[in-house]
Design a protein around this nucleic acid. Sequence first.
RNA 1: CGGGGCGUAGCGCAGCCCGGUUAGCGCGCCUGGUUUGGGACCAGGAGGUCGCGGGUUCGAAUCCCGCCGCCCCGACCA
Length: 475
Amino acid sequence: MAKGITKRSDDYSQWYIDVVLKAEMAEYSPVKGCMVIRPTGYGIWEKIQQRLDRMFKETGHVNAYFPMFIPESFLKKEAEHVEGFAPECAMVTHGGGKLLEEPLAIRPTSETIIWSTYKGWINSYRDLPILINQWCNVCRWEMRTRLFLRTTEFLWQEGHTAHATCEEAEEEALKMVHVYERFAEDYLAMPVLVGRKTESEKFAGAHHTYCIEAMMQDGKALQAGTSHHLGQNFAKAFDVKFQDRDMELKYVWASSWGVSTRLIGGMIMNHSDDNGLVIPPRLAPVPIVFVPIWRSEEEMALVLGKAREITADWDPLFFKIDDRDQYKPGYKFNEWELKGIPVRIELGPRDVASNSVVVVRRDTGEKVTMPAEGLRENLEKMLEDIQTSLFKAAKQRMTDRTYTVDSYDEYKARVEGGGFYRVFLDVDNPEVEKQLKEDTRSTVRCIPFDAPEEEGPCMITGKLCKHRVIAAQAY
RNA sequence: CGGGGCGUAGCGCAGCCCGGUUAGCGCGCCUGGUUUGGGACCAGGAGGUCGCGGGUUCGAAUCCCGCCGCCCCGACCA
């Protein structure tokens, strides 16, 4: 058993914190709600960035960078947006030892600074679309924080696109939520529900919001990514117009979309166990670790030599050889398990003699012997298999814990225990969601795209609804 | 902002009630030796503004007053 990690079954929340801290993903910083992301955690963020960035580029986007400081007045230009973000903005009031003429907000998101810039870039329909993404930090003064899941400052990417038509902006918002879906499932091995947010859950300033929602091992929902159709709200607030083919001046249509370091929290809460972190192979900065085993100087030379021989033509980022002499093999086994390395290879004198290695999977703990010949190909297959089975297990868990419920009493009794609930709720009426939240501390997570056609009475008001929505307690 | 907890060596804690040698233990760290296929052992060693500020006292980690910080659980949110 891993030292110092609370069991999931004893206290899920404490288990999560223990995993993050003990696996050296992150640690607390001197400022409340902020964290230091350590190399183990940051390496995963870098993999997320590499993979996603490629997907963004493949769908026609380019990266740019906009400043962190936003004039306070900018934030006030879009009514709904101000209301949503004003309370959680960090404000800079002084600079160079003097009181500033206008306070500067540290970006909670960049719609306003970006749209004020786009105004200068857009004149004609020929200037559209603009498909820009930026990787950056943002700051939101949250009341309650949790490592990776909700921190005062966090890292994310935000895409901001400008289009000539409503349809194009809609298409973009949809395209990107599906990019997130594919990323979550293919790389994080995290199954997600894809759907639309209700009016009361959508982004402040959006027409509507699409999202991916994942289920953690305790059955709670995690909003893992969002994509917004912003309509013309920001174009109007910042007066961004273009002249169309028909000579008319029109407001530009917008979308924005983002995922954050929260994904790392989702990854942890999807796959990790009582022994620590489990990293899906495709996100592991280094997926393989060799633990050589020796008793004497001669054996050390022998096994290290063999490890180097086997890996001579391997990609250096595919593996590492843990040749530290101050720890015994058993210690290293535990340490790499705690840190979530997908596959460990044990290589001792006996293995050298038989020209084979012992391979151990992090996800199942299964040990197999593999010949040194063709090892890399076999490992690549095993990593793919781990990736697939992590996804399957998570998918199964989500399926098993998605319930169809019609009675509000039953819902109230069960929702505390976690899981997704397919229910009829009149989501056109914000009062219904308000009551749901008051009664159960749960919310409507999304209206899934793939919800089958069904008709039934809202479990609170009895009003006839056209489809079921997903309700759950969320992080 | 409400409720709870904590602040003593890098980490985890004891000591505090009932004030009194040089503040202690485990882990980690350093040196030397023996070890090494699931968290090794022996010996020696380094490491402390006891959260901060006042007060009481001959004497405060310990008692009193004030402050600060962090974590956890709830109300807001990616």
